[in-house]
């Protein structure tokens, strides 16, 4: 898929809460082997943080990098599955915080872990069609894993925001994108339930890998490239292993995946995951580098995006904190504090 107008990433911003719980601590509590855990540790939102506050800070960082007036934004779209309100948009709060109201299209998007990139596809279309000069899309989650469930080890918090705008002046030119969707119930949360359920190993081959590889291959075909032609490749990161396995299947060198692979340090930030990975890559990429980003959302689908870095990146990236800074700001907490902060204790 391509847009009518030439567009690009005009600004990007990340946010990761500072609290971390070690996977070994979770394993200890539930009597599992602390050596055999999916990631080293995961981020935990503070008691005064939620998907909305995370979206606000990530969006503010994106706006700082874009260096435009918030009034020029045509959209504030927040992709998340951890909306603070079940009914009432998170996006209106973010838009008001940014100073982007009232001439704005604001909404929350939902598609499990690809809610953010779904919003990004929308933003690309909005700007690419000329409906707005700039459009903001955010992917954010404060993911909940049921205590003792496999997901508890990785369900983390964080988010990233992207402002799409004209190609001229952008930090990364948009080359094309593609979405691959089927009805595949590998992970879900029913209405009024606190925690999601998943279909265990069914989340692998027929779900994550099928959608990621199909989306990647189709986009690469459209752009007449091979996945390994890219300098950086980001896949959705439910754990540390899956993205590396996907890279192997697609013939991508692992050094191209590692710069955008942050799940080993902060876990799976769901709708924030691929977008935070993309932010981490934008923090280090050089002008003319090619970047491929492929998300995955259960249910299921993948969005694939191709970008080419411009020389504007060098200056712009300095205008807001990078992903590394947020990862380095780390305060370890034990399972008891984690249980309190994530409201797992019945009051």
């Amino acid at each position: 898929m391509k847009t009518i107008k030439d567009i690009g990433i005009y600004g990007y911003g990340a946010y990761v809460p500072m609290y971390r719980i070690k996977n070994s601590d979770i394993a200890r509590v539930w009597g599992n082997d602390p050596e055999r855990v999916p990631v080293k540790e995961k981020s935990v939102p503070g008691p005064d943080e939620d998907a909305c506050t995370i979206a606000c800070e990530a969006s503010k960082n994106a706006l700082l990098r874009a260096d435009i007036s918030p009034q020029k934004l045509g959209t504030v779209w927040v992709g998340t599955e951890s909306k603070p309100y079940a009914v009432k948009p998170t996006a209106t709060i973010v838009a008001e915080y940014l100073g982007a109201t009232p001439s704005i299209n604001a909404a929350d998007w939902e598609f499990a872990c690809k809610a953010g990139t779904e919003a990004l596809q929308g933003a690309i279309a909005y700007v690419g069609s000329g409906m707005a000069e700039y459009a903001l899309a955010v992917g954010v989650d404060t993911a909940q894993g049921q205590p003792s469930d496999a997901l508890e080890y990785t369900a983390a918090a964080g988010g990233a925001a992207f402002i799409m705008g004209p190609s001229e002046g952008s930090l990364a030119e948009y080359e094309g994108s593609y979405s691959f969707v089927t009805d595949t119930p590998d992970f879900w949360r029913r209405q009024h339930e606190h925690y999601p359920k998943h279909a265990s190993r069914f989340t692998g081959v027929p779900a994550y890998f099928s959608h990621i590889t199909n989306a990647t291959k189709t986009l690469c075909n459209e752009l007449q490239r091979e996945p390994n032609d890219y300098d950086y490749v980001i896949f959705h990161q439910p754990n540390a292993k899956f993205p590396m396995a996907a890279a192997k299947m697609l013939g991508v060198d692992k050094e191209k995946v590692i710069p955008g692979l942050i799940s080993p340090y902060i876990g799976n930030t769901y709708a924030g995951s691929a977008m935070l990975g993309l932010s981490a890559v934008l923090d280090v990429a050089k002008p003319d580098d090619l970047v491929l980003c492929v998300s995955y959302g259960s249910g299921a689908g993948s969005d694939a995006f191709s970008f080419k870095i411009t020389d504007k990146i060098i200056e712009a990236r300095e205008r807001a904190p990078n992903v590394k800074s947020y990862i380095a700001r780390r305060v370890g907490i034990d399972y008891a504090m984690y249980a309190r902060y994530r409201e797992k204790i019945r009051m």
């Binding site: 005064d48 939620d50 603070p84 915080y97 947020y326």
Partner: peptide, 28 residues
């Protein structure tokens, strides 16, 4: 300055967001 949850009116009421401050984020 950052924006955070100040408080909420219980489980079912509105959430009140507002400014808080934090130590300046060290940049890497």
């Amino acid at each position: 300055v950052v924006i955070r949850k100040l408080f909420a009116y219980g489980e079912s009421g509105i959430i009140v967001y507002g400014y808080k401050f934090r130590p300046i984020l060290p940049r890497k």
